[in-house]
């Protein structure tokens, strides 16, 4: 479904991605782990065209999307829940969801809204509250719901558990699994919390200094000595 090959991207002189190869198949949950500054967020953003790739190729459903503008990439069925959630603070929950529905047909809106409200009742309760006044967990839920409003086939999630209380975090991982199973959305997940992510994922990649240094199934990576040392123990 998603095929990234030889991808390079940079912020000015800083080379954040130095030739990355990643594949995500339809229906999978794929996790990407790695230390801070490894280039994980940059990879997700570059897939969406912001920043644009310096070289390499990104294919979605066999189509080259490397040079497409962001809004067109998103309209093909890729949604992102970015690092830091980026909920619109001065817009209500409902307006955030309306913006999220931009790529979808208008006729789906009411059904889709019912669907996310059924999944996340808290959002219905808070529908007229502005995004900036929600708690961290609520904002994370809103960011996920907002992404779902576009009816994506591939969902990119960047550290959805960051800064959340353990219980809320557990719930977020359950939600991700639900979205993947019941709504058939393919998931590419970036996580600091390597243990939870790898347990959830079918496959995983480990990134360091802008390169993929290891890949395997979730179980293989969990068992890997290097991964345990670097990302699991004391982490």
């Amino acid at each position: 479904m998603l095929k990234v090959s030889g991808l390079r991207a940079a912020y000015g002189p800083v080379e954040a991605l130095q030739g990355v190869d990643v594949d995500v198949d339809a229906g999978e949950i794929v996790a990407l782990i790695g230390a801070n500054g490894a280039g994980k967020s940059t990879l997700l953003m570059t897939i969406c065209g912001a920043p644009r790739a310096r070289s390499g190729r990104i294919e979605f459903d066999g189509r080259d999307i490397t040079r497409l503008p962001t809004f067109e990439i998103v309209r093909l069925g890729i949604a992102q829940v970015p690092e830091g959630r980026r909920v619109f603070p001065h817009m209500t929950v409902l307006e955030n969801l309306q913006i999220g529905a931009t790529p979808a047909e208008d006729s789906y809106f009411d059904d889709d809204l019912d669907r996310v409200f059924a999944m996340f009742p808290i959002l219905e309760e808070r529908r007229h509250q502005s995004g900036g006044t929600l708690s961290g967990g609520e904002q994370q839920v809103l960011a996920i719901a907002r992404a779902l409003m576009s009816r994506p086939r591939l969902l990119l999630l960047d550290e959805p558990s960051l800064g959340l209380a353990p219980l809320v975090m557990k719930r977020i991982f359950e939600i991700i699994k639900e979205i993947n199973e019941s709504q058939e959305v393919t998931i590419f997940l970036v996580e600091q919390n390597a243990y939870h992510a790898l347990r959830l994922a079918d496959r995983g990649y480990v990134m360091a200094n802008g390169r993929i240094v290891l890949k395997g199934t979730g179980a293989e990576l969990l068992a890997d000595e290097g991964v345990r040392k670097a990302y699991l123990e004391g982490g």
């Binding site: 912001a50 962001t70 998103v74 949604a79 619109f88 931009t102 790529p103 907002r146």
Partner: peptide, 17 residues
């Protein structure tokens, strides 16, 4: 208003910035 608050995010949600 979305572009005012976060242009990059608006783009990620399919808004033609």
């Amino acid at each position: 208003r979305a572009c005012e608050q976060d242009r990059t995010m608006a783009g990620l949600l399919g808004v033609n910035v």
